[in-house]
C-alpha cells in the first residue's frame, strides 16, 4: 500500500461489460463502465463519490466488494487483523470471510428487505451465515444492533411492511453493521428518503462512524449531501475518475471543468440569487462508444486541440488534489462558497 493510513486502495480498476449480439452472441463491443480508476480511502474517513447516472459510481462500489467481478486492476483492503489483502486474489471462502469487514447499504429500503422475513432474521442473517451467533445470543445481538440504530428492540418479530421508509433504512444499516465491519459502501443510502428523514439517517451514519471508527465510501448524486458528509470527494464522468480532492477544496476551487459545471448546476436554496450557470451542451457520452481523447471534450467550454487527441492523465497537481485534465494548471475555475 502506498498510503499507510489507508483502509482501502483501488488501483487502475476496470470493469468492462461485453455487448453481445446475434445468434452466436459474439462480443461486438464493450461498455466501459469503470475505466482505469484509482483512489484510496483512509481509516475513519468518508470518501464521497459523485457523478451523474450512468457514470459508473455504483459499478465501482460493487466491484470493490466483488459483488460484480472487476475486469482488471487491484483492490487492497486492510482487514480486521490489520493485514493488507488483495481482494481480487481471494477464493470464495476467503471472500466470505473478508465480507464481514466490508458491507453495503442499499438505496431503496423497500426492495432491499425480504418482505417474508422478520426483522430478527433480516438483521441476524449475516450472523447466522457466518456462524457468529444463534438462539438467544442472536436475539440479544440483534436487539443491541436495533438499539444502536435507533429502533425499538421490542419490534424484533415484526415484518418490514410495518416500518416506515426511514425505519427500513435503519434496518438495512443494522444488517450491514451486524458483522462489525470496518468499511461500508453506502450506495445512494439516503436518496430515496424525504429530507427530514434523510437528515436523521445522515446523523445516524455520522454518529455510528465516530462510535465504531467506520470508513465510508458514500455514493450519491446529491452534491449537498456529499458536501455535508464527506472528508474527501471523487468526481466521476463516463467511467473515469476526473477529480479527487478534500471536500472544501473541491467545492471552493475545482480544477476540472466538469466539476465546475456540476457545481454550478446545483440549485442553491437562496432565493432570487442570479448566478452564472454553466449549461452543458449535449449529453453524457456513451460509455460503449466514448469520444476520442478526453471524454468530456465535446461538452467542455475550455477544450483545445490536445483534448481531442490525447486522454489526460490522472495527476496530483497539488497535495491531495488529483485531476485528469490537460488544462488543469491554466484554468481558473469557479467553485461555490464553502460554509
Amino acid at each position: 500500500m502506498q498510503h499507510h493510513n489507508a483502509v482501502l486502495e483501488v488501483q487502475a480498476m476496470k470493469k468492462y461489460f461485453p455487448i453481445k449480439k446475434g445468434f452466436l452472441k459474439r462480443t461486438i463491443g464493450q461498455v466501459k463502465a469503470v475505466d482505469d480508476v484509482s483512489f484510496f480511502i483512509e481509516q475513519g474517513e468518508t470518501f464521497g463519490l459523485v457523478g451523474e447516472s450512468g457514470c459508473g459510481k455504483s459499478t465501482l462500489g460493487k466491484s470493490i466488494l466483488r459483488a460484480i467481478e472487476p475486469s482488471d486492476g487491484s483492490i487492497t483492503f486492510v482487514n480486521r487483523k490489520e493485514e493488507a489483502v488483495e481482494v481480487r486474489d481471494l477464493d470464495n471462502k476467503q471472500l466470505r470471510d473478508i465480507r464481514r469487514d466490508m458491507q453495503l447499504i442499499f438505496q431503496d429500503p423497500y426492495s432491499s428487505l425480504n418482505p417474508r422475513m422478520t426483522v430478527l432474521n433480516i438483521i441476524g442473517e449475516p450472523l447466522i451465515c457466518n456462524g457468529i451467533a444463534k438462539g438467544e445470543e442472536l436475539k440479544r445481538r440483534v436487539g443491541d444492533l436495533m438499539d444502536l440504530v435507533g429502533l425499538n428492540r421490542k419490534h424484533l418479530e415484526r415484518y418490514p411492511h410495518a416500518f416506515s421508509g426511514g425505519q427500513r433504512q435503519r434496518i438495512g444499516i443494522a444488517r450491514a453493521l451486524a458483522t462489525d465491519p470496518k468499511f461500508l459502501v453506502c450506495d445512494e443510502a439516503v436518496s430515496a428518503l424525504d429530507v427530514s428523514i434523510q437528515a436523521q439517517i445522515i446523523n445516524l451514519l455520522q454518529s455510528l462512524q465516530q462510535k465504531l471508527n467506520l470508513s465510508y465510501l458514500f455514493i450519491s448524486h446529491d452534491l449537498g449531501v456529499i458536501q455535508h458528509i464527506s472528508d474527501r470527494v471523487g468526481v466521476m464522468y463516463v467511467g473515469k475518475m476526473v477529480e479527487v480532492a478534500a471536500t472544501d477544496k473541491l467545492f471552493s476551487s475545482p480544477k476540472h471543468p466538469y466539476t465546475e459545471a456540476l457545481l454550478s448546476a446545483k440549485p442553491v436554496p437562496i432565493p432570487k440569487q442570479k448566478r452564472e450557470r454553466i449549461i452543458l451542451k449535449g449529453e453524457v457520452a456513451n460509455p460503449a462508444n466514448p469520444p476520442s481523447g478526453c471524454y468530456f471534450h465535446p461538452r467542455c467550454l475550455y477544450a483545445q486541440d490536445i483534448c481531442k487527441q490525447q486522454a489526460p492523465d490522472f495527476k496530483e497537481i497539488e497535495a491531495g488534489h488529483f485531476v485528469a485534465c490537460h488544462m488543469a494548471k491554466d484554468l481558473d475555475l469557479k467553485g461555490v462558497k464553502v460554509q
Partner: peptide, 11 residues
Amino acid sequence: LDVTVQAQVLD
C-alpha cells in the same frame, strides 16, 4: 433527472 440536465430543464 441529473443535476446538469435538471439545470437545463429548469432554465
